Simulated assay, not measured.
Amino acid sequence: MSLLEIDNVSVRFGEKPSALRQRMGLADTRITAVSEASLNINAGESIGVVGESGSGKTTLMRAVIGLVPIDSGEVRFNGVPLHARRSIELRRAIQMVYQDPGTTLNPSRKVGNAIEELLRVHNLAPSRAARQRRVAELFDRVQLPSSMLQAYPRELSGGQKQRIAIARSLALEPSVLIADEATSALDVIVQASVLDLLAELRRESGITLIFITHDLTLVRYLCERAIVMNAGVVVEGNTVDELFDNPQAQYTRELIEAVPKLPPVAGQVSHGN
């Protein structure tokens, strides 16, 4: 059994047609953002979800974590269906890191205190001293100096904010980490360092990583397997190497041809690890 199963999931935006409209045969005017998408993800796997803006990739993952309602289909975690109202444990199990971490950081709170408060609310450490130790461990894990514990978000660079966002997600001890365009707003050097960090975290902890991006070259760098989405539909899915060597969909071929290559970076991920 896969850790995370996405089974024929569709997401539509707009008001569902009334029973009367359906009986009259009037058209459903809702916008379909995701159409019958399916994907099985194994524990410890690193998988890319690729497509241009508007392809449905972020909407699909927001449906997985419960931020948008599923119109049809089902998402299961360890065989348990994930409904809109899910337990705290299930909400903690799947965490998401967003494209712009600055929008999710409280500008009036020091970043160390914000993560410490998260630990307190979720009862993940028995005392303030234990919470402070845990926050220091998380900062070390995402390669940030302890001096940054007392920083406000406005004092941090984009790459530092993204590492804080990753540390905050890891604080909840998730099984699945979804990174939504988590490096797209960063320059190439910082982008590479965050990619290396995600790869290292996955190797060390065995966390399952879902990497959402419009750039197939980043998926080749980081992931073992990928699906390609276009207009809300999964048009192709395969191992990353096979996807690049033998793309089946014309849309996939266009993505591969259009995106510039990522410069080589020390510590590039091997798909065999």
Rank of each mutant, 00 (worst) to 15 (best):
I6F: 08
G14R: 05
M24T: 06
L39D: 06
N40L: 03
N42E: 15
A43M: 05
V49P: 07
S55M: 06
K57P: 00
L60A: 00
V64T: 14
L67R: 01
V68D: 10
I70N: 08
F77C: 11
R85A: 11
R85T: 13
I88D: 13
I88A: 08
R91D: 10
V97Y: 09
D100Y: 11
G102N: 13
T103V: 13
T104I: 13
V111L: 06
G112L: 08
E117W: 05
L119H: 09
L124G: 01
S147C: 07
L156F: 05
Q162L: 07
L172V: 10
I178E: 12
I178H: 05
D180M: 10
A182Q: 05
T183I: 09
D196G: 07
D196A: 14
D196L: 10
D196T: 12
L197G: 05
R202F: 09
R202K: 10
I207V: 12
D215V: 07
L216T: 00
L216R: 02
R220C: 01
I227L: 11
M229L: 08
N230L: 13
G232V: 14
V240T: 14
A249K: 00
T252D: 06
A258S: 15
P263C: 06
V265K: 03
A266D: 15
N273P: 04
